Simulated assay, not measured.
Amino acid sequence: MSTRLAPTISRDTEFYWNGLREHKLLIQRCSGCGKLRHPPRPMCPQCRSLSWEAIESSGEGTVYSYVMPHQPRFPFFDYPYIVVLVELSEGVRVLSNLRDIDPDDVTVGMPVEVFYETFEGASGDLVLHQFRPKGLQ
């Protein structure tokens, strides 16, 4: 288990981090217009409603974009590592890491699925979503 920087958790994002601890990838759905949104925020950018509910994502999606950072090197990452923008099947995009694949084999549009990993955080254990090519277990 490697150490990671702890996220800043607010009233608006607490549901999201609690969901990850339960191995659920939660996204917001506006109660006013039904639009899905991520990252979490208090107001719907579409209709400006403050009412929303959390729905569980299937955790399946495709690689929308990716990058492999090289500098600065952080001690809590194994290099090379892949930062990926995943377009979930629900239509919203999430930023994460892509694991269990050679960096040369990553392609835009490839199907991926979520899994959860526990890291040591500054304030205890931290559960984060990670992605891997679909079909790996």
Rank of each mutant, 00 (worst) to 15 (best):
P40V: 00
L98K: 09
Q71Y: 15
W17M: 00
E22T: 03
T107Q: 13
A54R: 01
V67W: 14
V83L: 12
G121V: 05
T107I: 09
P75Q: 08
R37W: 05
E56K: 03
R73L: 12
C47L: 10
S96T: 13
P80S: 12
M68A: 12
C47T: 07
C44L: 07
L85E: 03
F119W: 08
P75M: 09
G32P: 15
F115E: 04
T118Y: 04
M110F: 08
W52Q: 02
P75G: 10
L136C: 06
S49Q: 06
L26C: 02
L85Y: 03
S96Y: 05
T107R: 10
A122L: 08
T107H: 09
Q28G: 02
S49E: 07
D104R: 11
R4H: 13
F15R: 00
Q130T: 04
Q46L: 11
S89F: 04
P45I: 08
V114L: 02
Y16T: 00
V92F: 06
C30L: 12
E56S: 05
N97S: 09
G34T: 06
P7G: 09
L85H: 02
R4D: 07
G124M: 14
Y66L: 07
P72S: 08
H129S: 03
G109R: 03
H70R: 14
G109A: 06
R41I: 01
F131H: 05
P133I: 07
C44N: 15
A6Y: 08
I82M: 13
Q46T: 10
F76N: 10
D104A: 11
Y66R: 14
R48C: 10
M110N: 13
V86H: 01
H70L: 15
L98F: 09
P40L: 00
E56Q: 11
G32Y: 15
G32A: 12
C30E: 13
F131W: 06
R37G: 12
L20W: 02
R21V: 01
E90N: 04
K24N: 02
E117A: 11
P103I: 15
V127G: 10
A122R: 10
I9T: 04
F77L: 10
E90K: 05
E117F: 11
C33Q: 12
H70G: 07
K35G: 04
P103E: 15
E117V: 12
E113D: 09
V84K: 06
G124T: 11
S123Y: 15
G121S: 06
V127C: 09
C30M: 15
G34W: 15
Q28K: 01
W52R: 01
R11M: 00
S2G: 15
L36G: 03
V108D: 04
R4N: 09
R11F: 00
T107Y: 07
R29Q: 14
S96I: 06
P72K: 12
R11G: 00
L25W: 01
E60Q: 10
P69A: 09
S65Q: 08
V127H: 08
T8H: 05
A122S: 07
P7E: 11
R29D: 04
R73P: 05
G121P: 06
L5Y: 12
S57E: 01
Y81F: 12
Q130V: 05
T62H: 02
S58T: 06
I55F: 04
L98D: 05
S89C: 05
M43Q: 04
P39R: 03
T62Y: 01
G19I: 00
S2C: 07
E113Q: 15
L20I: 00
